[in-house]
């Protein structure tokens, strides 16, 4: 079975089955369009620890049918148990996984990552808890640039 080599940002090299990693549209396109079977593909935005989680996801879903063109509307917690287990992550790690899924163009992983974050948001009873959970600093006020932009918008509408 053909394989694909990947190099993470922390210089760890992975050799993965083509069928498995082709769930990533980015890798699939690079391999098929650029014919880079042999050379390792650098992933400067993905660390090895993040890629490990991505690979776990790919293994869980390796036999899944191709995703539909149009996304199906699902409830925020509508995911299989394996995915739920996989997504039991610190938020910072989860954010890295989401970023990796976005970069590697793995729609299914991006979907469960975003839905998991959304689920966590829904569990928060107020915005204070959201701030605390996601370690978000208080940014209450607009910057001068934002104010200028807003004035411009308003003037455009109100004349």
């Amino acid at each position: 079975m053909a394989s694909v080599k990947l190099t993470t940002s922390d210089d760890k090299e992975y050799t993965l089955d083509r069928e498995l990693i082709f769930q990533s549209n980015l890798i699939k396109n690079m391999v098929t369009d650029l014919d880079v079977f042999d050379a390792p593909i650098p992933l400067p935005n993905v660390t090895s620890s993040t890629l490990d989680i991505v690979i776990k996801y790919l293994k869980i879903h390796k036999d899944d049918p191709p995703p539909p063109d149009k996304p199906i509307e699902k409830a925020v917690d509508d995911m299989i148990d394996e995915d739920k287990e996989l997504m039991k992550l610190e938020f910072n790690i989860m954010a890295d996984v989401i970023l990796a899924a976005n970069y590697l163009d793995i729609p299914g992983l991006l979907d469960i990552g975003c839905r998991t974050v959304a689920w966590h948001i829904k569990q928060c009873k107020d915005y204070h808890e959201i701030r605390e959970k996601f370690n978000i600093p208080k940014e209450l006020w607009r910057s001068e640039e934002e104010i200028a932009e807003m004035k411009k918008e308003l003037n455009g509408i109100l004349g």
């Binding site: 925020v76 975003c114 839905r115 959304a118 689920w119 948001i121 829904k122 928060c124 107020d126 915005y127 959201i130 701030r131 978000i136 600093p137 208080k138 940014e139 209450l140 006020w141 607009r142 934002e146």
Partner: peptide, 17 residues
Amino acid sequence: FSYLQIQDLFKMERVCR
């Protein structure tokens, strides 16, 4: 945000700029 319902968005929008 697209996975959130309106009441969640309302909660969310207060979080930060």
